[in-house]
Write a protein that binds this DNA or RNA. Structure first.
Length: 438
RNA sequence: CGGGCAGUAGCGCAGUCUGGUAGCGCAUCAGUCUGGGGGACUGGGGGUCGUGGGUUCGAAUCCCGCCUGCCCGACCA
């Protein structure tokens, strides 16, 4: 994309309403604009990040047998009355009436809908297990929206639902998802620690939330240093292998972690003092096993092997996709701006033409840009160099390819790594090779 | 929902106390120079002062209602 044509309005000054780093940076870098309290419009670069995150989630969910569907945002009150949650959910649920006077709601979550879908379709134990997920906008009428997209009222979320025949199978599904989540967060470039959690209005008995460690997090967290030290890639746990899921269960059981809500002082004191870690965390995911709660309340059964009907065991698994955009920035930024992890960056590199109009610079830039117009953000604006440097740092692409008249004469470009600040003068071919553009 | 604060140009703000018909910086447009970390100069455009009512010869300014946004707290992906 040519920056001269892009709809990416960067701001030199910070809008007064933004209090925390991620919110300020998202506004300044031109990722989002607020529409009303807790409701945002995503601009092109922000949308790219949102999609990158969603795609990583998708790939990893598919890898463990998830199947993507897309359920509607608007649901009928009738559905929620069947589970008994219509009244239980409270004012956080946005209720709507259509022109016929029918009661509708903007979905805050989809257990009822997916259970109904499943029940109407699956009739035999032979069709289990099933893992369905979708990535869809949700609405929860938060009492006090704040922190930009981190606590919006409208938010983009992946919610998955597992259906199993037995408690044992459901617990396997639960840990399979947990393993998948750990991988997802690693790919997103953040450290997220699973912590025992309350089940809230979703209900159930086995639940963990995933907290990204960041100083602005809303919860206080306590965990064993083991969570910092485990090298998941080299352990290589396979989500399809039952014994590996058992190993994960063992790690979870023996490596302490909890938010302040579930903090257990006696267990904490059993952790050696030099291994206790604390801090603040942002909740970016939450998984629940809730058994037959919905299949029973909504009357969903399948025939078992012996012909007798049984209620499938369910779990639900959420990842806050839009919140993650903010959370990643909270965990990865500096004074100058955002530092995007490789896989989520809106563009892999910014190409800075320090002297547009200079024949050599233009030529060199065009030849580089032509190699990947989709993946490069070409700053071809007629602004001065300082503006471009500052905007590139603000927008936070992993790499900057800097082309100026000095180097251009010699066929050299400069490569800057945003995260480390490291710069190197390279011959064009070398630079292209390093970025995989050769 | 309880407590606090704020709405004046795209953004950041002054002007409100003490009423006299709106201003600064940045951004933007035109031009000249400049050219490796938000450059300089010249000239221009842009505002029903959140909104409705009231007081007054006259309201951004005083009074009342409403709307919107933000911060602290109890709740959540």
């Amino acid at each position: 994309m040519r920056l001269s044509q892009a709809f990416q309005p960067t701001l030199k000054e910070v809008p007064a309403e933004a209090q925390i780093a991620s919110h300020r940076l998202m506004l300044r870098a031109g990722l989002v604009r607020q529409s009303s309290s807790g409701i945002y419009t995503w601009l092109p670069a922000g949308l790219r990040v949102l999609r990158n995150i969603a795609n990583i989630v998708r790939q990893e969910q598919d890898r463990i047998g998830g199947q993507e569907i897309l359920m509607p945002t608007v649901q009928s009150a009738e559905l929620w009355r069947r589970s008994g949650r219509y009244d239980a959910y409270g004012p956080e649920m946005l209720r709507i009436e259509d022109r016929q006077g029918r009661e509708l709601l903007y979905g805050p979550t989809n257990e009822e809908m997916v259970t109904d879908l499943f029940g109407g379709t699956v009739k035999s134990y032979r069709e289990l297990p099933k893992m369905l997920y979708h990535i869809q906008w949700k609405f929860r009428d938060e009492i006090r929206p704040r922190f930009g997209v981190m606590r919006g009222r409208e938010f983009y979320m992946k919610d998955g639902y597992s259906f199993d025949l037995s408690y044992e199978d459901a617990v396997s599904s639960y840990y399979r998802i947990m393993l998948s989540y750990l991988k997802i967060f690693r790919r997103l470039g953040v450290q997220a620690v699973p912590m025992a959690a309350d089940t809230g209005p979703i209900g159930g008995e086995l639940s963990h939330e995933f907290l990204v460690l960041a100083p602005t997090g809303e919860s206080e967290v306590f965990y064993d240093a083991g969570w910092d030290e485990i090298d998941w890639d080299s352990i290589g746990l396979d989500p399809q292998k039952e014994e590996d899921l058992q190993k994960l269960r063992e790690i979870v059981k023996t490596t302490y972690s909890a938010t302040d809500e579930k903090h257990d002082l006696s267990a904490w004191e059993a952790v050696p003092e030099d291994r206790r870690r604390g801090g603040r965390g942002i909740e970016v995911g939450h998984i629940f096993y809730f058994g037959t709660k919905y299949t029973e309340s909504m009357g969903v059964e399948v025939s078992g092997a012996d012909g007798a009907p049984l209620h499938p065991h369910m779990g639900s698994y959420g990842i806050g996709v839009s919140r993650l955009v903010g959370a990643i920035i909270e965990a990865s930024h500096d004074e100058a701006g955002i530092i995007w992890p490789e896989e989520v960056a809106p563009y892999r590199a910014a190409l800075l033409n320090l002297r547009p109009g200079d024949e050599l610079c233009d030529q060199l830039c065009e030849s580089i840009y032509g190699r990947d117009p989709e993946g490069l953000l070409y700053d071809d604006r007629s602004d001065r160099a300082g503006v471009k440097f500052n905007d590139a740092d603000l927008m936070g692409h992993p790499w900057q390819i800097i082309v100026g008249p000095r180097g251009a004469k010699a066929g050299m470009v400069e490569l800057k790594h945003r995260a480390t600040g490291e710069r190197s003068e390279l011959a064009l071919d070398e630079a292209l090779a390093k970025l995989g553009l050769a």
